[in-house]
Amino acid sequence: MAQIKMALDGADKDLSAGYMMWYRFSRNPAAVIGTLIVLSAVICALLAPWITPRPQDVGAVVNFRARHLPPDAQHWFGTDKVGRDIFSRAIFGLRISLLLVIGVLGISVPIGTVLGLVAGYAGGWTERLITGLTNVMLAMPPLVMALAVSNLLQPTLMNAMIAITLLWWTWHARLIYAVSKSVASEDYIEAARIAGAGPLHILFREILPNCISVISVKTTLDAAFVILFGATLSFLGFGVKPPTPDLGSMVADGRQFMPDFWWEVLCPGAVILYVTLGFNLLGDGLRDMFDMEG
């Protein structure tokens, strides 16, 4: 009797949606690898001062005797033009990249989500205004706008972040709008309204839960885009001020010494690739987990 009960419990557990999602996620090698990559990057960035071999190289250190050294056991990624350890600097550079992700997505995702929800549910002029604004913003080349904005103000990381954030919310608004619009015409929304639910309740308690999967997949994939975007900005010279290490500007610095000192370009580049790969794999894994199309 007890055995049957246990078996039944097990079956029950197997059928729960959360367990099925976890099962799909944990059996998906890409998702697991992506999670591990992202976790390792975050941990490295957090613990950078303690785990890097030469944390002092983050500052304006000059050690000309050790300049342009190729990768070896002591300097895993070699050294740069003034003899600083590229591995240490790259790990610290990760901090800037991840900070950028938190800053940009932390602001633009909530804004985009709320606007998308409202546009899809409210309809009428509100809908036209928000979708119109979104369409206009989408027509702007993001990189060009970010360059223009950050340089017309001051070419700092803070301004670059503001510029990216100004443009980024549109993609989320557009996406959430589509989901919200299709959900808004469902019967249960009508039922909730008849039962006397206010617009806030309907937006955030009835419609928003339908968007969670879309938001989490999009946000994860966007993290990779933001990192790429930030690296591109600093590669073009619109990043943090030296000597603060930043992956994009490290690649730009190394480019002057191509092709002889290739590691000065490829090693920081590989770190960017590592993180963006992680977020992409994780995003794809989440998409499979939620069983979404495309």
Partner: peptide, 22 residues
């Protein structure tokens, strides 16, 4: 597809230059 969305375009461009030069 994965490489296409993952790799920074400047890194890809520089790598092409490196390969061509070598």
């Amino acid at each position: 597809s994965l490489v296409g969305v993952t790799i920074p375009s400047f890194l890809f461009a520089i790598s092409l230059q490196l390969i061509a030069a070598r």
